[in-house]
């Protein structure tokens, strides 16, 4: 006997058979996914709120310009001027290495490399993307710092290892999305390959490359592990000589956080608030920029 005969047409279109039970489980799972998404978003807001609550009161022009009190960290709060300047310097150095390296790699992989050469480079890129950042730090520590001491150059190199895969992978994607018809049109007109790349492909992919660079800069600005062993200056006055260690925001936060002095900790919150604002704004900006440039390309 089959209890699952065709449903009676006279029966209203409400759940029949086991459907009521199945709907309950299904709705429960849907509810779980909604809750999970809500949880993630609330964690983001809780973190931002917590940092803002403790850090926003620190924010002042003096805080951005002054330096940390040198010896006795009494009741006077200091400033993070030297760390901001140093962070700008090492991120600039890093981007100067990573942007050309990343874009050239992307050009090579998309425009020149045959499958056999492309495969190992592609793999290396994927592995670099997953490289623990502390290993980038310890690598440069062994390579440069062990011989020449800490420096902004060393920090820049370590950060560029983090940045290159970010820039290269996004650039590859946006170059691949350049319509083949454009390239074919250029080929049909007998235009030299390099002119096509520099005149058509790169300008068309520029939106994606700029986005990737902004995101990579935001990422590098917040990375601690690569700079901890390469430029671990803390609490120093303004120092921009790239041959020497320079103070920077992540290391400053890392050290202030571990200090037992409440005034120092509130400086850490101030610096963290600044960092998080910059990074989130860069993320939002990069997304908007990407959306705009894609719309302009009609994608």
């Amino acid at each position: 006997m089959n209890v699952h005969a065709s449903p009676d047409p006279a029966h209203a279109l409400t759940p029949s058979g086991n459907l009521r039970r199945r709907m309950v489980t299904s709705r429960a799972v849907v509810a779980v996914t909604v809750l999970a998404a809500a949880l993630a978003v609330s964690v983001l807001f809780i973190i931002v709120y917590f940092v803002a609550q403790r850090g926003a009161s620190q924010i002042s022009v003096a805080f951005f310009i002054r330096q940390l009190p040198l010896v006795s960290y009494g009741k006077v709060t200091g400033g993070i001027g030297p760390a901001i300047a140093g962070s700008v310097e090492i991120v600039l150095l890093s981007t100067l290495i990573a942007l050309p390296a990343g874009v050239l790699t992307a050009i090579y992989l998309t425009e020149f490399a045959g499958a056999r050469v492309a495969a190992p480079i592609q793999t290396a890129l994927e592995l670099l993307a997953g490289l623990p950042t502390i290993i980038a730090g310890i690598f440069v520590a062994g390579l440069l710092v062990a011989h020449y001491g800490q420096s902004a150059y060393a920090a820049g190199l370590a950060l560029s290892i983090v940045q290159v895969p970010l820039i290269a992978r996004t650039s590859i994607e946006s170059i691949r999305r350049v319509p083949a018809s454009l390239r074919e049109a250029a080929d049909a007109l007998g235009i030299a390959r390099w002119r096509t790349i520099t005149g058509v492909v790169l300008p068309t992919a520029a939106g994606g490359i700029v986005t990737a660079t902004i995101l990579a800069i935001a990422r590098a600005a917040g990375e601690t592990a690569p700079v901890l062993f390469t430029s671990s200056a803390f609490g120093t006055p303004y120092q921009l000589n790239p041959n020497q260690q320079v103070p920077n925001l992540p290391v400053e936060i890392y050290n202030l956080a571990n200090s037992l002095n409440p005034t120092a900790v509130s400086d850490a919150w101030g610096a963290a608030f600044l960092l998080i604002c910059l990074i989130l704004l860069a993320n939002i900006g990069a997304r908007l920029w990407l959306r705009r440039s894609e719309r302009k390309r009609g994608l």
């Binding site: 983001l44 935001a218 917040g222 997304r287």
Partner: peptide, 24 residues
Amino acid sequence: VVGPLVEMLAAIPSVVLGLVGIYL
């Protein structure tokens, strides 16, 4: 809206997350 917000969670620097970890 939610997608980028979730991705932004990954953009929070680990040192800031550690700071929140210590104090919250």
